[in-house]
């Protein structure tokens, strides 16, 4: 039986504002299936976002939805979660929103390991403002502000999240909606801060300037560059040029006990704060 997306959508807001063939729709659908997987009550979920194409996603979801300022979604989300720790908070963000203007909030939400899930749709560009280069635009590529080729090095959002202390980190591409669903579900279930990066196509902006102006060629560009994490681990850095590494970067205790993660939190933030309340009230 086909999945009933209508259950979670505000159908009166459809059709959406995204371009035909946009990757964000795949991510939204994966999210809605994940909600069904974890079985949360719609009344108990808040979807929060910043500014950009991806940040319009919450408007279509029939939950408590908050469309905030550019880059700041995680700050509002943190306020909601700390005010109501037993409710669920999920954040949608784009690459520019999460790692440029919101970069500080991103690393600190990871550091706190607060029980929220962040989905970053990475389409390598600022789509809504006309296709300028973002912190994830690969070197050499053209955008409306790098017509001679981009020289800014890129962030690997997963490595950044992992280093900053998130307790579940994974990346999948919009070519593989089922994998995306699996990762998002695991992220929602993880008691801690989860980051799922969805590599997506923006053929309208990023694609058009790099000779792949239709959804198919943009998605093919993604498929051609995908390397599973297990394979990447066997490779040298200079072989991993202009690639998209997919898989689960941090999953379980085994991974988190590796020495590189020595200063990562041993607790989830709202739990830790509950203990502070107990301490203060005992005094």
């Amino acid at each position: 039986m086909a999945f009933e997306y209508e259950k979670y959508l505000r159908m009166d807001k459809i059709p959406h504002l995204w371009c035909p063939g946009c990757g964000i729709g795949v991510v939204l659908k994966a999210m809605l299936r994940s909600l069904e997987n974890v079985g949360w009550e719609k009344n108990d979920i808040a979807f929060v976002s910043g500014i950009g194409c991806t940040s319009r996603a919450p408007g279509y979801i029939d939950c408590n939805t908050l469309h905030t300022t550019h880059g700041r979604a995680l700050t509002f989300a943190t306020g909601i979660k700390m005010a109501k720790p037993d409710k669920h908070v999920v954040v949608f963000s784009g690459d520019g929103d999460a790692t440029a203007i919101g970069g500080n909030h991103f690393i600190h939400a990871c550091r706190r390991n607060i029980d929220m899930t962040l989905v970053v749709v990475n389409n390598n560009t600022y789509g809504m403002t006309g296709g300028q280069h973002s912190p994830t635009t690969p070197i050499g590529y053209k955008t409306s502000t790098t017509v001679y080729g981009n020289i800014d090095p890129t962030f690997d959002i997963c490595m950044l999240a992992k280093a900053a202390g998130a307790s579940y980190v994974a990346r999948a591409t919009v070519n593989k909606g089922k994998v995306l669903e699996k990762y998002i579900t695991k992220g929602l279930e993880n008691k801690g801060f989860s980051v799922i990066v969805a590599t997506a196509n923006c053929h309208t902006q990023f694609g058009r300037k790099n000779k792949m102006g239709d959804p198919i060629s943009s998605r093919k560009w993604i498929a051609d560059r995908e390397i599973p994490l297990e394979k990447a681990r066997e490779m040298k850095a200079d072989e991993l040029n202009d690639v998209i590494i997919t898989g689960e970067f941090i999953t379980d205790e085994q991974e988190r006990t590796r020495w590189e993660n020595y200063n990562h939190p041993i607790h989830e933030y709202t739990d830790a704060y509950k203990k502070i309340i107990e301490k203060a009230q005992k005094k």
Partner: peptide
Amino acid sequence: GSIIGASLAG
């Protein structure tokens, strides 16, 4: 941002 979020949560 955090105080706006908390206030929305009541």
